[in-house]
């Protein structure tokens, strides 16, 4: 803990940040699951030993990079979702924001606790989205939604014998849609307010998700719904 909070932090090159965040997500999820599995063995261990194991796992589970979600990420991400920029940087920033949204909200969904999000895979899939010459701005958010869902960026942790339930796809879709609605909406003034706006977006999307046509062959209609929700966020 002392090293994490006060020790020297190496500067991570920009091209490695997304894979590092994915590794951190993976390690954190493994630690969380290990703690759950070891819980049943806890009575067999001496109390001090169990406390050391648990605090170590807690530390790994909650380890976070010092990076914040500021305008340098949010502006290009919003530009990409709103089809105002089409650069690889925009795609990366968008994937970064989707990863941020996933980290911020997925534990509130019981079915998604053991499901992971890969920012690297998402960014790679978003770079393949056509520019507005072949895709109108109104369906850009829907294309992002469909691309990410089909990319394999969201998936169950390999090697874990945990039940994920039947709602994974639906709940992951709602969460992803809420992140896009957040990026389509008018920005908030501070990072704290952005987090609050993200929470509101998830609640609003959950509340009206049943009204969204599940027909993923109609990206125009889906994108229209996302925009409409963003207007009311």
């Amino acid at each position: 803990m002392i090293f994490v909070e006060h020790g020297p932090r190496p500067e991570i090159p920009a091209y490695l940040r997304a894979p590092f965040r994915d590794i951190r997500r993976g390690v954190s999820a493994v630690a969380e699951n290990t703690e759950e599995f070891l819980e049943s063995a806890a009575p067999m261990l001496p109390d001090p030993a169990w406390r050391v194991v648990r605090s170590t796992l807690d530390l790994v589970e909650h380890f976070e990079f010092s990076e914040t979600l500021d305008a340098q990420v949010l502006v290009p991400a919003r530009g990409f979702v709103q089809a105002r920029n089409h650069s690889a940087k925009g795609a990366g920033a968008c994937a970064r924001c989707l990863g941020f949204a996933w980290d911020h909200t997925h534990r509130s969904q019981a079915s998604l606790r053991h499901v992971m999000f890969s920012e690297s895979i998402a960014a790679s899939s978003l770079r393949g989205i056509p520019s507005p010459s072949s895709a109108s701005s109104s369906d850009r958010s829907a294309l992002i939604f469909l691309k990410v869902l089909k990319s394999g960026a969201i998936g169950r942790m390999p090697g874990l014998a945990t039940e994920t339930g039947d709602n994974v796809l639906n709940d992951a879709s709602v969460l992803l849609a809420s992140a896009l609605v957040w990026l389509l909406a008018e920005p908030a003034a501070t990072e704290a307010e952005e987090r609050r706006l993200l929470d509101m977006s998830l609640s609003l999307t959950q509340a009206i998700w049943d009204d969204i046509p599940p027909n993923t062959d109609a990206p125009e209609a889906l994108g229209g719904r996302f925009k409409d929700m963003a207007r009311h966020l």
Binding site: M200, S203, L204, A207, I208, D211, H232
Partner: peptide, 14 residues
Amino acid sequence: DEKKLTRVFADWLK
């Protein structure tokens, strides 16, 4: 309950 309040807003909007 903010979840319920959001539900209120969503229903009202519809």
